[in-house]
Simulated assay, not measured.
Amino acid sequence: MNGFEKRAEQLKAKIRAAVLTMLQTCEPKHIRIADIAAEAGVSQVTIYNYFGSKEDLIRDVFKQYVTEQVTEFERFIGSGPTFQQFVQFAVLTDKDAFRKFTPEFIQQMMSNDLAFAAYIDEVTQQTALPLMTRFIDDCKKQGQISDKVSTDMIVNYINLLMAQSHRLLEQAKQSGKGEQFFEELLHLFFYGVCGMEPEV
């Protein structure tokens, strides 16, 4: 990468970081290119040159976030975690997403942006679920997950939750306790209503 390319990537990173910060408190429709430019310390022309439009920029930011999370998930699974460690990882990941993006924004991206929704589905089906399936199989072999529930059923349950993601996001918002909502949801998923967390 030459000096010009390096400078361009640095500017793009500043712009993405500015948008990510703004999305924590603002809906996309309330964010203006002028506000992004001021936050990032760049000109509006620079933003248009690199990203084309506000919509394309916001999509790029969210897509990069998802890609980074998938990469981190791959790294984490590759480290050979226990089931308990995986639950903790999942809780922290959901909390991080809830802090960075409002439920309305996530709903909008998944409902109104067909290209982005297709990207999420592709990442889920080709990367996340295969990794999850192998992890579940390993945990079952090690006695960390009950043999009474098949891997296919667990994956089907995950797909069921994903299909209801919009409703779950709305309920998380209405609860006023978004992070706690997802923590309880994950506990319910992994340990059931009567199940107890294994001792560490």
Rank of each mutant, 00 (worst) to 15 (best):
V61F: 04
V87I: 13
G41I: 14
D138P: 07
L92V: 13
F105E: 03
A97W: 05
T46V: 11
Q142P: 15
A128V: 15
E68Q: 12
S53N: 10
L92P: 09
T102F: 07
Q44C: 02
F51N: 08
V91K: 12
L114V: 13
G41N: 10
C26K: 11
A90P: 07
G52M: 02
D113F: 07
S53D: 12
R134V: 12
A38L: 06
E122K: 03
C139F: 10
T71L: 05
V42L: 06
K140S: 04
D96C: 02
F101C: 06
L114P: 06
S43Q: 06
D94Q: 15
P28R: 01
I58V: 15
T124Q: 00
S53A: 13
I136P: 03
A38D: 09
Q142C: 12
G41E: 11
I77S: 02
I106C: 12
V45N: 09
F105V: 09
V91Q: 06
A117M: 12
V87R: 03
A128Y: 00
D96M: 03
G78M: 08
G143E: 14
T93I: 06
K54N: 07
Q85G: 12
Q142N: 14
K100S: 10
V66I: 15
S53T: 15
F51L: 02
M22A: 07
F51H: 09
N112V: 07
E27W: 08
Q84W: 11
Q144H: 13
F76Q: 02
A118Q: 13
P28A: 05
D138G: 01
T127M: 01
S53Y: 08
I58D: 01
A34W: 08
F116Q: 02
R59Y: 01
E39P: 14
A117R: 02
M109L: 11
Q108G: 02
A115Q: 11
V70F: 11
Y119G: 05
D113C: 10
K141D: 13
G52C: 03
